[in-house]
Design a protein around this nucleic acid. Structure first.
Lengths: 349, 349
DNA sequence: CCTAGTAAAGCGAACGTTTGCGCTCCACGT
DNA sequence: ACGTGGAGCGCAAACGTTCGCTTTACTAGG
């Protein structure tokens, strides 16, 4: 019960005021001394203030700062779910960039449901996030309208919509890369499990692939281009349809690594093996893909970079700048799931 | 440029003060009327205040509230990474429970690095989170000490440590379930890819499995119990070691679905198939596992429930209660990757 | 020596909320 | 008729920061 005994170690956490009292200076001086670029305060004072702050374990009270400045130093991220490795990877980039800039990330997961999307976005706004990274579906751009109305800056990640600031990879180019790789290996009977073609990601990848095939004079039948979701199960189903439509094909492009995993199952059910009988290419280069039984050839869509770039653009916008949309270049990652046509149906090398 | 024109729709977002001004009552009255359980204010006033608040789209300023009450209405979650589906699933539960209680979740990912763990936890504390769910490794319980020192309530999720509030599943029982299942199917040559045995999760699962085997009089050689990480790659390596140690075994228990996926690869490399040649059981029941080429028999470790329960316990603690540690009961989920010994090496049913 | 100029530090208000306290007023019991 | 009590509401302080403005002190230039 020695309250206020020694005099220095009051009670509770250190605050600007407590530091000022202890040093016999005004609180505003302490505030300035502790700011990132001190102005109007001598170097000596800065030194002594910072020393004491460190000693007392001072931590700026973000709530007070937010109240005073009107900026929460937090960004929101709108996302269907984080159990999807694609989104989790983007989140990783978002959070990294946010932290580097002194921001925190608040995730709102919507499970792709419109009611939740509305509600969760509302929660973000109540926390006065300074901006929002939108990595959710854009079927109904209601969320975007809500953001516009609230006057909160936002940037689209992964998907893109004309007229909005967005960051993604060039999915058209990515689809091309895959086609060129398979064509170079001599494959001519090609199938596509196209992912969700209502999302720009899915449709662009398929389009790039088909465009490159057409240019090379290789025809791809319409019935071996099947859309689906972005999960394993729907990949398996769509893969089955593709294989049943043309049992002779020697290579398949799946618009996502998860989908590719499903296709592996469909192939297996039909007694066909990767890559011995059929070459398979995925998309996204998830961690999982390199570690699969048969390491997957895939396209690195630079998900972490997307997250980083989106957040950087967002923060530039928050700071009053005028960032521009960016389209990152994808990279082909060749692994064991693809093999030249000539080597197919032979034993292992 | 019609600033302050109409008189009602001032500028900027609605605040308690602006509502009070418009209604001609005191701001404290508005505050009380809007509180979850209004006291000291007439029902009529509550009604009229809430109506206007809704109309003006009033949102409580969380920063101001946090400053005043000293509670941020946010909980932190300490986690290695969210690209790990296990952790992402737990997070889902945490966030659900947090939102239900009016809280937000702040994720701090540590990548299993001690320096980051320290730094990210520091960031959480600077944001004055009211409590922290610790789902990170406990090798070095430095984070816990840091929390103790800061006086911030915490609860351990997934892993457990004697003397600390924790929520997890009964991994010992889970391991038993697996053993009983395989033994009931007549398997007697068993291997274990044990995951990270430095974590309670890994060691307990293996221990439960071996205990049940012992009780059934089935001996498991030491060299077919191999520890590893919790990722696909190390699962493949450890799986290879197990298989090389005893090529005759007919069933393998992998302490995680990801590890099981790695084991599938190791089996495949040796020309053995699941479940025709070898039965395989995983752990955690990830979404992925049901959708694999061969749907995986696994143990549902109720990850979402763990997240929910951990958060509920944490909030009870924050509210001054004295919650107790909980151990949830795991469930065996039988799918196609296990098959009675007698049916092995025969064709499909 | 006086004045202008500048750097350093103090002053105080403001951000939006919550909450203990005090005031007013009406209904009730004796 | 007079105190009692409680319901309803106003008052004002406080939470920890930031920042425009003012004051002080010191230096340099004429």
């Amino acid at each position: 019960m020695t309250i206020g005994g020694a005099g220095r170690g009051r009670e509770g956490p250190a605050t600007l005021t407590s530091l000022a009292r202890e040093l016999g200076v005004h609180v505003s001086t302490v505030s300035r001394a502790l700011s990132s670029r001190p102005a109007g305060v001598s170097a000596a004072t800065v030194e002594v203030v910072r020393r004491l702050a460190a000693e007392r374990g001072y931590r700026s009270n973000l709530a007070a700062r937010a109240l005073r400045t009107g900026r929460s130093l937090a960004v929101g991220m709108l996302v269907p779910r984080l159990t999807d490795e694609v989104l989790a990877t983007v989140y990783e980039g978002v959070d990294e960039a946010a932290i580097e800039a002194g921001y925190a990330t608040l995730v709102a997961h919507t499970l792709d449901r419109e009611d939740l999307r509305r509600q969760r976005l509302e929660l973000l706004l109540a926390r006065q996030v300074d901006g929002v990274v939108v990595a959710d579906s854009l079927q109904d751009s209601h969320a975007v309208a809500q953001l516009e109305e609230a006057g909160v800056p936002y940037v689209l990640a992964l998907r893109c919509l004309p007229g909005h600031l967005s960051v993604g990879t060039d999915d058209l180019a990515g689809g091309r890369l895959v086609a060129e790789h398979l064509l170079a290996q001599g494959h001519t009977r090609l199938g596509v499990v196209a992912g969700d073609t209502r999302a720009s990601t899915g449709s662009e990848r398929a389009r790039g692939f088909l465009l490159a095939c057409e240019e090379a004079g290789v025809q791809v039948r319409e019935d071996v281009v099947v859309p689906c979701g972005f999960d394993v199960r729907s990949g398996a189903e769509a893969g089955a349809r593709v294989l049943d439509a043309d049992p002779e094909l020697t290579a398949i492009f799946a618009a996502s690594d998860n989908v590719a995993l499903g296709v592996v199952g469909a192939l297996r059910d039909r007694g066909r093996r990767v890559p011995d009988d059929v070459s398979l290419v995925g998309y996204n280069n998830l961690d999982m893909s390199a570690a699969l039984p048969v390491p997957l050839t895939t396209v690195d869509s630079r998900l972490v970079d997307i997250g980083r770039a989106a957040t950087q653009a967002l923060l530039e916008l928050v700071g009053g700048g005028t960032p521009v949309s960016r389209r990152l270049e994808p990279d082909l990652v060749v692994r064991s799931s693809t093999r030249p046509r000539s080597l197919s149906t032979t034993g292992r090398p």
